[in-house]
């Protein structure tokens, strides 16, 4: 489903209130609310570590009820979206071209999934193809839509840093994931920490807290509400040694 909206639309919760009302925004997908949002950005050529953390963060914020905003690019963006989708969370893709195009091709399957559950959004006429300056404008939109920005891994010259600086101009928080000090692709995000961005030092196990009070398998099933989900959690926690089963009774590792 396609929509043409302007910045005053209630969907955006006043995030784009200052925008020229004549300027249109093009949406495809479902109109979902943007109560709490987080932007996950980073380089297209991230290390395996960066990719994994992007995925974990996407997953974590989606579990916590945030809408994950990112740019549907290859690398960190893609993984952030994937992480959110993996737990059935909401995630918004911001495009640097019209809705009838897609770039890069590799992220098209993820875009399709996003259109099923949330939406993709763009500044441009549907038939407008991608152009270099558009991506800078796209980054502005990511910053504007997000309550705060997380930079996972970014080199010194990077779109993610541009997004971060837009966010700072708007008075929003920027967090960054510490990277290896000798890795060029993490130099920019490390620099952000030096400049005062809040470093992310752990991905909290949001799932665990909900279940810590469970004493038996039945409790876990009751809390999760689904047998398959309970099985998935059990496999994960048994494998990581977080819990052991003694008949029906669960013993948590303290």
């Amino acid at each position: 489903m396609d929509y043409v909206l302007n910045g005053k639309d209630p969907l955006f919760n006043d995030r784009l209130a200052d925008l020229d009302p004549k300027r249109s925004l093009y949406l495809r997908g479902n109109r979902i609310g943007l109560e709490r949002t987080v932007g996950i950005v980073g380089t297209r050529h991230a290390s395996p570590y960066g990719l994994r953390i992007a995925y974990e963060l996407g997953r974590y914020y989606a579990c916590e009820g945030y809408v994950v905003i990112s740019g549907l690019a290859y690398g960190v963006d893609e993984k952030g979206h994937e992480g959110a989708l993996s737990v059935g969370g909401k995630t918004v893709g911001v495009l640097g071209h019209g809705l009838n195009h897609h770039y890069p091709k590799a992220t098209l399957p993820i875009r399709k999934q996003i259109e099923q559950t949330s939406f993709v959004i763009s500044w441009y006429e549907p038939d407008q193809g991608p152009r270099k300056p558009f991506f800078r404008e796209r980054n502005w939109l990511i910053a504007a839509l997000s309550d705060f920005i997380v930079v996972v891994e970014a080199p010194l010259k990077s779109g993610a840093l541009i997004t971060a600086s837009f966010a700072l101009e708007m008075g929003k928080d920027v967090k960054a994931v510490p990277g290896d000090i000798d890795r060029p692709s993490a130099a920019g995000s490390n620099l952000l920490i030096l400049d005062g961005a809040e470093p992310i030092v752990s991905v909290p196990e949001s799932e665990m807290q909900k279940y810590k009070s469970c004493k038996t398998l039945q409790d876990i099933i009751a809390v999760s509400g689904s047998l398959v989900e309970a099985g998935r959690l059990l496999a994960k926690w048994q494998s990581t040694g977080m819990l052991t089963m003694d008949g029906d009774i669960i013993k948590w590792r303290s």
Binding site: T216, L217, I221, L227, A230, G231, R232, L234
Partner: peptide
């Protein structure tokens, strides 16, 4: 259900 959940795990 506990048996099923264990099997699922």
């Amino acid at each position: 259900v506990a048996h099923l959940a264990e099997a699922l795990s």
